[in-house]
Design a protein around this nucleic acid. Structure first.
Lengths: 107, 107
DNA sequence: CAGACATATAGCCAACTGGTTATGATTCTA
DNA sequence: TAGAATCATAACCAGTTGGCTATATGTCTG
């Protein structure tokens, strides 16, 4: 259920998809039609990208009559933050050991 | 010179490349030969991925005789952190600390 | 109900990507 | 110096991807 960092990386790697996500972040909830107007691609292409973003947990959608409203899910980015934090932790360890060493040398 | 977030996303989207980067983070400096041993792909494939990581600013290389040593560049992740900072308020604190950490590591 | 509207799906295709083997360029060593 | 070792580059190929058009599905309106 919770997408892994790989999925999020792969999904955001495409500039068009990233652009759609960014617009949803800036402008809030938008219909497919509104998103299509700003993107320079066809409506089916927008729909496909939105489906990808959705399955990566980066957007949610809501039905309203014949329209479908999409909005960004900021928490969908957490796998990325976790991934960064994971490798931050490795570096943290190395850094801490280094600082330890320097401290002992100075004494 | 400073790669944009798009380049970093695209580069880390590939699982093999991400795996190489992760290993460099964990194990520190490594030769191509050492990296090839752990990866399940040919040496030329490893070299190609390393070239991609390098042009994305995620690794540096160093010559030593006929060997070439690669190491992760933590600061190469900054474009990612910057981009995340624009779209997530939740983890602002964590990102700030991470940014700090990245800066101090590569120094 | 007929037709316009909003969106998703299907099917197709060109371009990109990530892998391979073969080989070239250096550098070490016997 | 001959050959082995390390790595990068070249040439090629198969699978993926992102775009398109055509069409299906569902909803509103006259």
């Amino acid at each position: 259920m919770n997408p892994d960092s790989g999925t999020v990386f792969r999904t955001l790697a495409d500039p068009t998809r990233r652009s759609l996500f960014e617009q949803l972040c800036r402008e809030g909830e938008q219909t497919v039609w509104m998103l299509t107007r700003h993107a320079r691609i066809s409506q089916p292409a927008v729909s496909k990208h939105l489906a990808a973003l959705k399955s990566a947990g980066l957007v949610h959608d809501r039905h309203e009559g014949r329209e479908r409203h999409y909005r960004a899910v900021a928490r969908g980015l957490s796998p990325l933050v976790d991934w960064l934090g994971l490798y931050g932790a490795f570096w943290r360890d190395r850094l801490d050991r280094l600082e330890d060493l320097l401290e002992r040398i100075d004494r």
